[in-house]
Design a protein around this nucleic acid. Sequence first.
DNA 1: ACTACTCCCTGCCAGC
DNA 2: TGCTGGCAGGGAGTAG
Length: 297
Amino acid sequence: MPELPEVETVRRGLQPAMEGQRFLEVEVRRGDLRWPLPKDFARRLAGATVTGIGRRAKYLLVDLSTGDVLIMHLGMSGSFHVFQGNDKQLGRYRHAREKHMAGKHLAHDHVVFHMSSGTRVTFNDPRRFGSMKLVARERLDDEPLLQGLGPEPLGNAFDAAMLAQACKGKKTSLKAALLDQRVVAGLGNIYVCEALHRARLSPKRLAATIAGRNGAPNERAERLVEAIKAVLNAAIKDGGSSLRDHRLTDGDLGMFQHSFRVYDREGEKCRTSGCTGTVKRIVQNGRSTFYCPVCQK
DNA sequence: ACTACTCCCTGCCAGC
DNA sequence: TGCTGGCAGGGAGTAG
């Protein structure tokens, strides 16, 4: 499901619910996520206070008073639901859960955090590609999951010079390069398609063509960086995109899917002003690409 | 060192 | 109606 804007939206939803609070109890209903949760997972969390919630690429990083960091990833279908209320309001809780899940698949509630304020935070993930991992903060720099990640696309380090340098000499398509988390971290299939469309660049173009020889950025690299930042900021403002199962932590839907210019719009009219093209779907590296063959060159 | 492909898992939908 | 194949927002591991 979630790319950077959705994960950032989740982070902002979890923050007021968890920050400054203690884990009273951690209920692991199914520990076989992407990797099995270790046997001491719940025990290591219990009693810890959440001192902050951050994000790196598509990972949520929960800082704990114990010196551990809880690293969480939503995979393709993971979501969090926050319920603020006490144990006497279980009816309201179930109602909220059903709204969140659109009435289905409560069986995929795999982990429940019971916080000291009475708030419960439920992790639901039908496909179980999501993951959780506890690591000591002092070893975070050596954490393999975070090790090779490229820059944050909304950070200052991400600019045309950097992107061109990373794409220099790449034999792969621009689409594949942007999906590569080592080039830039946090983009997924939707926002790569959307950013390429905004930059009027073909997804089939060779990645190396946004850099001159010696790796200097050209005007395409400038356009692309601007487009990436713009589409991510717009999506975050809208609470991310809801295709089938992405919900905000309060059960509401993200809204950015209504602003898609190409993604999931095969056969529909290109939304570039003045363009007469029709959105086309192709497959690149086994994944759908949506683009306009008329205005994206 | 690169790049491309397979696989993990469940749900949903179009087409027979 | 019920089955089947294909597809889905990610990414680790592996085979070239």
